[in-house]
Design a protein around this nucleic acid. Sequence first.
DNA 1: ATGAAAGCGCTAACAT
DNA 2: ATGTTAGCGCTTTCAT
Lengths: 342, 342
Amino acid sequence: MATIKDVAAQASVSIATVSHVVNGTRFISDEVRERVQRAIAELDYQPNRVARNLRSSSTRTIGVIVSDIQNPFFPSVVRGIEDVLQAAEYTLLLGNSDWNLARERLYLATLRAEGVAGIIFTPSSEDVTEYQQFLKSGIPMVAIDRAPVGWGGDAVTVMNMKGAQDAVAHLIGQGHRRIGLINGPLQIGTAYERQTGYEQALIAGSLPIIPELIRNTDFRQTGGYETMNELLNLAEPPTATFIANNLMTLGAIQALYERNLHMPADMALIGFDDVPWAIALQVPLTTVAQPTYALGATAARLLLERLREPKLQSRHVVLETQLLVRASSGVEQATVDTSVKT
Amino acid sequence: MATIKDVAAQASVSIATVSHVVNGTRFISDEVRERVQRAIAELDYQPNRVARNLRSSSTRTIGVIVSDIQNPFFPSVVRGIEDVLQAAEYTLLLGNSDWNLARERLYLATLRAEGVAGIIFTPSSEDVTEYQQFLKSGIPMVAIDRAPVGWGGDAVTVMNMKGAQDAVAHLIGQGHRRIGLINGPLQIGTAYERQTGYEQALIAGSLPIIPELIRNTDFRQTGGYETMNELLNLAEPPTATFIANNLMTLGAIQALYERNLHMPADMALIGFDDVPWAIALQVPLTTVAQPTYALGATAARLLLERLREPKLQSRHVVLETQLLVRASSGVEQATVDTSVKT
DNA sequence: ATGAAAGCGCTAACAT
DNA sequence: ATGTTAGCGCTTTCAT
């Protein structure tokens, strides 16, 4: 690989001149500039980013830690991040925390060592002190999807409580009185908020909160599958269920399918987070859609702004969710949304 | 951030000693080692990877370029890569090429400048010369999913032709004689191979190859949607269709759904690449499953081996696909696979 | 068993 | 308008 020295020699100039031509950081006569550019082309020179990073003690790399890249929610978020970063000529270091604090810690340490300019992440802990040390180190961090209690940094989240409330209110409106909840672990902020929304909706509808209908599992497909089976095995199962994420919903549908139960007659269902295949299911799925791409893009934008102006006041952007009513929640076919989401 | 100098000062040793303690690269007396380790802990020292990379002119970063992170195929591949890399203490720089050569070029250049130790990528071009310059630069590259014609480096792919052949043979076995193909662009190797498999199966079944039943679009959901509509608008539509990837299949199902057509009676369907929701669809979907996680993990393993032994002969691993027969291809319910894949 | 010092490739302050 | 050079934080050769 050609270095700046090679280019300088080839063009018979100093390395400073080459650097300034490359970065446009000072005036260079046309003649010299052309000579340098020719040398760069001839040698196929590309500035070594590692050296540049070391020298300027800053990189053009952003670390991204997501909970589970295999959950379609996150690729879409990542895609939003990537598009914004790419336009700003940043690159993206990716890690999966697996909803796991230890793994998240490992990645955070790695990202710091890699000298990333900033970090966008889905916090695995609700405890801010977990990140305090990191925040002190001065690396800007943007929390997405959820923010630890008392998080002082930038954040982009969605209206989880409102989204859940809308969903459950809709079920109540359909006449359901025993409504189940399949949720993730309460330590995770989004799960907590969605559960609160569920409870608020019940209260608003003058319905009792029945503990046996509220289940917390992991946010995975198997969790949804097993938990729906638990609900169905109750002496008096719910007639409708709100499920707090997409993969758990898939597992739950699987459980219904195996027992030959039909939505919405045997069980009405609303899931959280829309998915491309909601429309192609046995019964099209009512969901609370999240603006996933915007979530990522907004987070990236906040981060880039902070990089430009470090002392900006921190901002917490809360995006809206949208209840997409389809057949699984028990509405006449006529009003069903069958549009293709792409 | 504490540097090696700070640690050396705190422990009253030279920076060389600190370096050797950190890396275990030479014998250090117990006493000194402990002193250094204490200093490291006290200062919360973490070696600066950027400096380390510059000095050793090699990084512990692997670049990964995938076609489309929003296609569930790729997150699973990425996950396989990540797990192997993480165990070896490498990190992962990610980019989406969008099936787009220009964007791929951009990322390749960036990755080279970032000094990645190696690259795992889904080639957007079938033309090896596109990558020759890069290969010469000595950065090990592993092609996944598809390899350019004459690709000399490491590669991990699947038996696309065989997979397609199995699928179409199965449809023929169900009595179908007009079988459509919805495929990606032929310039993409996987599309070409799957198309060949389709044709081979027809030939083996003594069936004619009917051009109007063969359609090439992009590998996206909208492409599948529009193309299925085209097939359905034919004077004599096919009775079965083989669709060469997962997202196009979803689009095609969408098209059927809108016209109130039922699988497999009105149209039998087999998709390529299994998806978690295949089972929860209106009619469970028969698919040609690819070992996505293994694809990624194998690629990462090949790359790490090459990093260790650069002159290893290059290897092309071809993984098997598996036809998962479910209801959409027109088999009795009794034999349908309803297992949960997680 | 440990230390001193060169140098990776670049940027930028300080020359001229 | 261009050149010289220090130094970013580390690894590693050469000394002792």
